[in-house]
Computed example of a mutant assay.
Amino acid sequence: MTGKTHLIAGVTMASTIAHYTNYEPLALIISGAVGSLLPDICHGGSKIGRRFPLLSTIINTLFGHRTFTHSLLFLFIIAFVMNRFVPVEALTVGLLAGMISHLILDAFTRRGIRFFYPLKLTVRFPLTIKTGSAIENLIFTGLTIIFFYFLIHIVWVY
């Protein structure tokens, strides 16, 4: 999936959570955006990989693409670190929601993800979507509509 689709999925998931909880919406949405891009730190050409090229190169050299940073293990480590060092629960929830949305979307690609890393098992959905395809654009459009729906409800309530 492209960065824009990951980003809209992360903020859509975060805004949905904000709508149904008492967490600070802005904290959720911003951290959801960051979380939606974080798993691709292992890819130098990604939005976050270009922002942090040295870190991206190190992670890619150690683990490769769509392995460790696209795994349940990485989610647990990030959750542990966030719970331990970040006192704002909404930031943790948003970050993890964004990351989970990223993993779900990448599991829809032919390459899939190594969700159970370090096991060499690739997880992908039976129906796959080509990155940049019309189907991905349709998903992007649908997620954008859902995001604005929840954003309007969040703003209306606040």
Rank of each mutant, 00 (worst) to 15 (best):
T21A: 04
A27I: 12
L28K: 00
I29H: 00
I30K: 01
G32Y: 03
G32V: 02
V34M: 12
G45M: 11
R51T: 12
L55M: 12
T57R: 15
I58C: 06
I59T: 03
I59V: 13
N60P: 04
N60F: 09
H65C: 06
F68W: 08
H70E: 04
H70W: 05
S71T: 04
L72H: 00
L73Q: 04
F74T: 03
F74D: 01
F76W: 14
R84G: 10
L91I: 12
L95F: 11
A97V: 07
A97C: 10
M99V: 08
S101T: 09
L103W: 05
L103F: 09
I104Q: 07
I104V: 15
I104T: 11
D106Y: 05
F108A: 11
R110V: 14
R114V: 01
F115W: 09
F115T: 04
F116P: 05
Y117D: 03
P118Y: 05
F125T: 14
P126N: 06
L127C: 10
K130L: 14
T131K: 13
S133Y: 09
S133P: 09
A134S: 15
E136V: 06
I139K: 05
T141K: 13
G142Y: 10
G142K: 09
L143S: 02
T144A: 14
I145E: 09
F147K: 01
